[in-house]
Write a protein that binds this DNA or RNA. Sequence first.
DNA 1: CTGAAAGCGCTTACAG
DNA 2: CTGAAAGCGCTTACAG
Lengths: 347, 347
Amino acid sequence: MAMAKVTMRDVAKYAGVSVATVSNVLNHNDHKTTEATRNKVFSAVKKLNYRMDMTARTLSKGKSNLIGIFMPQVYENNIPGTILKENPYYSEIISGIEYSARMLGYDILIACIGSAEQAIELTHKRMLDGIAILGGYEEDFWDKVYTLEVPIVTIDSYDHERKDVINVGIDDEFGAYLATKHLLSLGHTNIAIGAAMLDYSPVNQQRYKGFVSALTQEGIDIKNCPVIEEEVSIKGGINIGYRLIKDHKDVTAIFIVADIMAYGVIKTLHQFGKNVPDDISIIGFDDLSFSNYTIPALTTVRQDIYTKGVETSKLLIGCIEGNVEIPNSLVLPVSVVIRETTKQRKK
Amino acid sequence: MAMAKVTMRDVAKYAGVSVATVSNVLNHNDHKTTEATRNKVFSAVKKLNYRMDMTARTLSKGKSNLIGIFMPQVYENNIPGTILKENPYYSEIISGIEYSARMLGYDILIACIGSAEQAIELTHKRMLDGIAILGGYEEDFWDKVYTLEVPIVTIDSYDHERKDVINVGIDDEFGAYLATKHLLSLGHTNIAIGAAMLDYSPVNQQRYKGFVSALTQEGIDIKNCPVIEEEVSIKGGINIGYRLIKDHKDVTAIFIVADIMAYGVIKTLHQFGKNVPDDISIIGFDDLSFSNYTIPALTTVRQDIYTKGVETSKLLIGCIEGNVEIPNSLVLPVSVVIRETTKQRKK
DNA sequence: CTGAAAGCGCTTACAG
DNA sequence: CTGAAAGCGCTTACAG
């Protein structure tokens, strides 16, 4: 029943040429073949329904046309989860990477990793041509990963000392600055920040920095601007909501460093009978697709997440294929999109 | 700079044994080696930091330890999106598949596919050991895909005539039946269904069937129970909301076949000043992680999506490795989780 | 322009 | 128990 695999040998035999010639035709080394030969080969390919075995090709060429997408393995109550499941941000990026890579002739291997070693292991054993790394990691993670000799694109990383590591990101500080400016422009002065992982997430450090710089620029005393730190998840946002209500009654506006957290804040405030934006204004960061549909609709800092993914593939593959003119980093634009969760401060 | 690749040859030489022996040690064919030999090999492996090249192994064994996850490529306003981006349901499943596969020694290749041919192409060219197929497809898609000679696990499919295709799913009809029963138990009689793709999605046909059967069992006239069909997305839900308000003023409760759509319905009703659940009760289906956090929190039919993914890997890999006792399908439980969007009908 | 041959890094009978 | 050799399906100098 199981049909024997059709190989280049079969095609060669059928077309009456050598295996080398079939290879040359299929790899479009057109200067090495005549059109007549090509036609014979192509029709044999069609006739026999031949499909190139990438495994053999990879072994032989040392190039797999496979790209790895790595993201952190997270645990939630000891249950293995993935960033993928927790935060739609990653799904959107992966969508972009996958689509763009496919268009450029590359396939995608995804893996959640718990250590740099796992990333290294995988890229060696699958002979990955390049890797995209999502998410935040400890510092020595990067040191180790950067020993890899394939092109790497990081996303939202601020740890790229190595010259040939490309980063795709946004100006996080500026985005946070804009968000805070927006709240200030509405007359708020007691502004909190809902932050996360300030100890070791450079992205969030940047966002915090932008928050502070907008505040100080306006002469606001930081003392009145509490930092409420929780994890990046809806649950983290829920907790921020509690703490806001319990400990920071004078706060009238809050900037949250991630939309996914803002969802939780809105939920908690609603549960406690607080009106958003009448009692408290909220501005998020990311503009996830759902943010337009929360109740009330979330005012936030927009970044084009899908495009981030698309550009990641383009840069990574450009680098793999040795294109020149590959920049060391790409910074995509941010902007404030005003919806319903922010409002002029009550007198 | 670039260090030469460490191969089995190097390990063999260093350990003073043959390549075949190294292979035997590494593949745990312990009955073919002595412990002394094994120790020599292992320490050489460690010393040289050897990593097995899966590409070579795949070519040689005809087995890749790679699993493909395929899902439909969708377009939204002509922009390529993916199911991944549109519906968190898929992210959750993929999380489960990836985690479980990794634990079992398999890596994951993901691809959005536009046709059966693409799926076939990919599984051949990457020598995938098995594939998991998510999402709905036209009928001839399945006919073609089933010509593949690798194990296949479908998720939520009702098109598995082939004996060796395993399906992981739930009792969609029963879930919908329970949902509708819940609405009926609250005194509602004018109940609508927010449906999708009833023409060609068996899952949704099943859910529709459960809806109808609960209704007729209770002696309700289907005439009063409109079917409002839109696409599976928040936007689809938004449209259902509009149509509900415009065309179905007497409806007091609605069962929506997907949480993601329910989010849109809640949003629209809210925008038009309708109170959920006072004016209209809503029950969804899926219990996405976010459903606990909508305002109001969504009453829905729960299924364990992550577990679906985990089981998918277990079955697929079990099948790949020739375990016996692999069932032809796995049906996971559903249950109604009552939150805030459903309420006793007003007199 | 075309083909024979070596090689990519493994595994697997087969002999010893 | 161990090793030499052939083979997996390609690519790539090299000769012709």
